[in-house]
Amino acid sequence: MKTTKPLIILGQASVSFLKEWDSAFSTGSDIKKAHVFFCDYSNCDIPVGHVFDTIQIDNIIVADCQIILKRVSQQFLKPFDYIPEGWQTICEFEFIGKVPEIIAASFPIIESWDSPNHVIIKFS
């Protein structure tokens, strides 16, 4: 299933939020290595397990990679089986192979969707 438009990523979840995430989902993973991002409103349903294959900035592909959607939730940390159309979500992703440098270089750490220092980067 390919999304019709890219998923907009606003920023990386803060360490304090990641502790809540780990507690809610019992991931048991190293929170310093977790790739949990605040995502903007989705234009379509996207199931857990979906694989994105590019990262875009200003509609220009800046990295080709495989990014698997692993977990989806929202502000109350209720697990979802998919990103619902029209929702802002918090999602955990797994990068297959090396994590692209653009992730470390461009993603601000944010506390919520309303954080003033967010960026718009797209997974498609």
Results as ranks from 00 to 15, higher is better:
T3R: 14
T4G: 14
L7H: 09
L10S: 09
Q12W: 14
Q12I: 11
V15C: 12
V15I: 07
S16Y: 09
K19M: 09
T27H: 05
S29C: 07
D30C: 13
D30F: 10
D30H: 12
K32V: 00
K33W: 01
H35P: 00
C39L: 05
D40E: 08
S42I: 01
N43C: 09
C44G: 08
C44V: 04
I46E: 01
P47Q: 03
G49R: 02
H50Y: 07
V51R: 08
I55N: 01
Q56H: 05
I60E: 14
I61L: 07
I61E: 15
D64A: 14
I67E: 02
I68P: 00
L69I: 06
L69S: 03
K70R: 12
R71E: 12
V72K: 01
V72G: 02
Q74A: 12
Q75G: 13
F76K: 15
L77W: 13
K78R: 06
P79H: 07
F80M: 10
F80D: 07
Y82I: 05
I83V: 11
P84R: 07
G86W: 04
G86Y: 03
W87V: 14
T89M: 02
E94N: 12
K98W: 01
K98Q: 11
V99A: 08
P100E: 02
I102N: 04
I103A: 06
A104G: 15
A104W: 12
S106Q: 14
F107N: 01
F107G: 00
S115G: 08
N117F: 04
I120M: 15
I120V: 15
K122E: 15
S124M: 09
